[in-house]
Simulated scan of single mutants.
Amino acid sequence: MKQDELHGSCLCGGVRYRAALPVFHASHCYCTMCQKQHGAAAGSYANVAGAGFVVEQGAELITEYASSAEGRRGFCRVCGSTLFWRSTQSPDRIAITLGTLEPEYDGIVQRELFVDQKPAWLPHA
């Protein structure tokens, strides 16, 4: 495994990918669409260059859903793992899900998006 790449996979292991560094920023997105897709308080992503994103295995298992005019969400159609989010307005970037990375992401999360939609049930620091 190269040190200048991130690697990840879905829950069933059918999809494997790599993404070239650097990570432009990592974020937690609290929009209701991310909450519904992830089944969690937020979607957590590493924003990288789209040109450096390569599906090494299982491309035929990836389904993309146009959740809005601004974005498409990619997931494994076998196990349902959310893999990425693509902006239609910034097609040169892709936001890969932090929870699918192997080994786990060791960078910091620099941004929180849509904090006005952050669930009240989250613990407060």
Score class of each variant (00 low, 15 high):
R18P: 07
A19R: 04
F24T: 02
L6G: 11
D4G: 07
Q3K: 14
A19D: 03
E5I: 01
C34Q: 01
P22I: 00
L6P: 09
T32R: 15
L6C: 02
Q35F: 05
L11K: 08
H28N: 05
M1V: 11
L11C: 10
A19K: 06
A19L: 07
H7Y: 12
P22G: 04
R16W: 01
H25I: 02
P22E: 01
Q3S: 00
K36E: 10
M1K: 14
Y17C: 13
C10T: 11
T32V: 13
F24N: 03
H38A: 11
Y30V: 05
C12Q: 06
C29R: 00
G8F: 00
C29I: 02
M33G: 03
P22V: 01
A26D: 01
V23E: 12
R16M: 04
H28I: 00
P22L: 00
Q35A: 09
D4T: 14
V15Y: 13
L6V: 11
A20C: 08
Q35M: 05
S9Q: 04
A20T: 09
T32E: 14
A19V: 07
Y17E: 10
Y30P: 10
A20K: 15
H25P: 00
C29T: 04
P22Q: 01
H7G: 07
D4R: 09
L11Q: 09
G14I: 09
H7R: 07
K2I: 00
Q3Y: 00
S9F: 08
Y30L: 12
A20F: 02
V15C: 01
A20E: 03
P22Y: 03
Y17Q: 09
L6H: 15
H38G: 06
A26S: 12
R16A: 10
G8R: 11
C10D: 07
L21Y: 03
V15F: 11
F24E: 00
V23I: 14
C31G: 09
H28S: 10
G13A: 07
C34P: 09
V15I: 12
L21H: 04
R18W: 06
S27I: 02
C12S: 08
V15H: 09
Y30N: 12
V23Y: 10
P22S: 06
A26H: 04
V15N: 07
Y17A: 09
Q37W: 06
H7T: 12
L11H: 15
G14C: 04
L21M: 08
A20I: 06
M33P: 00
K36F: 02
S27D: 10
L11P: 03
C34A: 02
H7A: 05
Q35V: 08
K2W: 05
H7W: 15
Y30T: 10
G13F: 13
K2N: 08
C12L: 10
C31I: 08
F24H: 02
A20P: 08
D4N: 15
H25R: 03
A26K: 06
K2H: 01
